[in-house]
Design a protein around this nucleic acid. Sequence first.
DNA 1: CATATTCTTGACTACAAAATCAGGAAAGCT
DNA 2: AGCTTTCCTGATTTTGTAGTCAAGAATATG
Lengths: 215, 215
Amino acid sequence: MATVLQSTKGERVAGRIRTVALEQFSRLGFERATMGEIAREAGVSQATLHYHFQDKAQLWRSAMLDLGAHIAEEERAISAARDAPAVDQLRMAMRLFVEISWRHPALGRIVALEGMAGGERLAWLVENLLGERNRRLARLAARAIAEGDLKPFPPEQIVVTLQAAAAGLINLQPLMRANFGVLAYSAAGRAAHLDMILAAVFDGFVNRKNEETRP
Amino acid sequence: MATVLQSTKGERVAGRIRTVALEQFSRLGFERATMGEIAREAGVSQATLHYHFQDKAQLWRSAMLDLGAHIAEEERAISAARDAPAVDQLRMAMRLFVEISWRHPALGRIVALEGMAGGERLAWLVENLLGERNRRLARLAARAIAEGDLKPFPPEQIVVTLQAAAAGLINLQPLMRANFGVLAYSAAGRAAHLDMILAAVFDGFVNRKNEETRP
DNA sequence: CATATTCTTGACTACAAAATCAGGAAAGCT
DNA sequence: AGCTTTCCTGATTTTGTAGTCAAGAATATG
């Protein structure tokens, strides 16, 4: 996962730093990740980090933008059928979300960390990476409710709870290991996870009448 | 939320410190919470913290035990019907979990923080606070599956995902506010949240055949 | 290939936070 | 009250980390 353009040497190094930084920020959170360790891991001196990035916060933002670009690219590949019922679009969105969350666990971890803490970095994330997508999903949920396909839970709560459930199992792998001695990384575990999320939504959140009218 | 016994002055002060510490650890996480601020908030000097608690880690553990005792007390009030079908016990457990999570948001936040990060504190939490309960829930889920009432997802994944969903909305209030400008603390919001979780489980995870055999 | 530009670094400063300690105040006990 | 133990604190040390800077190496360019 390098950054977009790498023509000069500087850009190559900056990209490597971003990659390492993303991993550390996601695994440790903003405070526990240190400039020194990121530098060591990237094979450069700490001063080099400050040459390429003004400060730690800017490195964090830069790493996030990198991640956002990669995810956006993968998402673009999947074209949502605009005229499908909202509930079907939501299903597709959830499936996509789970898949991307497994492929880029950093995103969910960072959203969880910053989304709990609040503050500047969360505001930045919402402004630059999450806000529009989440609002679109909430509108989708609201539309699905209006179309009579979803139970009338608050749309924002639907979106956040679903994402929490989807990202939760991925984020909490250390807990899984510590508590049960197992992980869910296996292909079977991932498939079961996706099935669970979809089941929660589409046999749980969807009104029963649906299954009668649309076989 | 003070500690159990407070006969002497020292125990009263230690209890106050634990209470403040719990709030800070839960809101900020272990690293961002500072001994200085906890001391200030508790109205004592920083050195007093080190008189009552050897170091920051021990203060953290002590605050967790305090929280655990309070929750255990509330749980004891509710007697689970041992001979009810596993799936019904699971429903009751989930309802209880959501209610307690709203009442003690600190627990879910700390489990989320440490459960993502791994490490010593997570090991301690599992050993002293979470492990037994989670394993019991997983056994319950396994039994419900064996009894044909639950879809055959991996029990550990069921437990962790459900808890992630239940705690997620509570933990992510800052995200809710930043992204949507709304909160879910209201009585209606909480009720909707509980309904969502139960819906996910009991119309989503439960096999359809159930509704036919047991009206 | 000479020169300008970009890049990298070791050594350093600044700072915030944890942890220590000796002295003294307050509480509890007879 | 007098004495002992518990409790609390200001001052200080220690540590870990972000950030700066001047000097020089590497790289790109005409």
